[in-house]
Amino acid sequence: MDRAPGLSVRLKLALSYAAFLMVGGGLLLAVVWVFLLRGTSVSIFVPAPSNLLRAFDPTNFGPIIFGPAAVAVMAFLLLFGLLGGWFLAGRMIAPLTHITDVTRMVAEGSLSRRIGLQGRQDEFRELADAFDAMLARIEAHVAEQQRFAANASHELRTPLAITQTLLDVARRDPNRDADALVERLHDVNARAIDLTEALLVLSRADQRAFTKARVDLSLIAEDATEALLLLAEKHGVAIETACEPAATIGSGTLLLQLATNLVHNAIVHNLPERGTVWVTTKVRPGHAMLVVENTGEELSSCSLSTLVEPFQRGTGRIHTGHSGVGLGLAIVKSITEAHGGTLVLEPRPSGGLRVVVELPGAAA
């Protein structure tokens, strides 16, 4: 933004200090005049140069030299105020200058720079600490977005490369079974569509571009469970539900996607046979909770933090023919945060995963 040139803050402060001293000096001289020299005969004249030094002699402070002394004192206060104010203003705004320099570096793309002001807490250090915290969040967000873009590009390129390979093989081999080729292309295309739709849902949740309404998590959980009963039977997984009304404010479509992803993950990442999934909704003071647990192999606490990263499917989890696109829990995390909630992943002592989604409750 183009701005008209103006005085620096340091000069403004110096002038302010000097003006304050001048006003204080004027008030002091007025007090001396009112209480000490009132009623006396005052002769104000400019003395000879040889008598100027007598103006600062306390024994000669009287009616004759009051005028020249006052002028000399005011001139001294003005000079002292300007010099002292310039020095003090420089000391005071030094942290602000450092903050400005770091801000310019950050504006040029150096997000790793930090202000890091030292010393006791004051307004400048509060500003610097808040700015450093903001930079840390921005740097982490940019790194996450770059990582996500790279992973998304890789995942989207895979089905396209497979499609290109199948078409090239079919072109070189006219006698190839067309039905098998079409079926394979259908599967690859379906995976690309699933991935694209998942990316759109994730973007929608991140941008919080949705209409909010009153939603009952118990109904959401029941709908998600019913939609996945056939998949659970196919994998030999039993689903147990214990849902009590738990109202929150948000998007019913996104929350249904959240519950569906959780139940789906609990089914496909379960024991090879006789697995179980528990779906529970409950209310806590001021909060509505959705809890999804599943049996499975033991998970380490270190691996849990990576499960909510995009395209991270987690090492050691069971893949039973449906690994998904690697965005299930990433979408759950984004939807939860978009609704002002918290997501907690905990390993079950006997194996498997426990996921707790806690959202702000809605008033009755």
Rank of each mutant, 00 (worst) to 15 (best):
K212Q: 13
S43L: 02
G250Q: 02
T59Q: 13
Y17N: 00
A170I: 11
T320P: 09
S300M: 04
L166P: 01
Q207F: 00
E346W: 08
L13T: 05
G328R: 06
A128R: 05
G324F: 06
I65N: 15
A227W: 15
F76L: 13
T165G: 10
I331L: 14
V32M: 12
S153A: 14
L217I: 04
T306C: 02
S112H: 11
R184A: 13
V277D: 14
N51W: 10
M92G: 00
R191H: 15
A338W: 02
F20M: 07
L353F: 12
V73L: 12
S350K: 05
S218I: 06
M105A: 15
H269P: 06
T281K: 09
E244A: 15
D216G: 06
F61G: 01
N265G: 11
F210P: 12
F148M: 13
S251T: 03
L329C: 14
T40Q: 14
E240R: 15
T315W: 12
I162P: 03
R348D: 04
L167I: 15
A259K: 13
R172F: 15
I239G: 05
E183H: 12
I249Y: 15
D173P: 02
I99A: 07
Q312P: 01
D122R: 01
R137N: 15
V142G: 08
L271H: 05
A288W: 09
N151V: 04
D179Q: 09
L28C: 01
A152I: 03
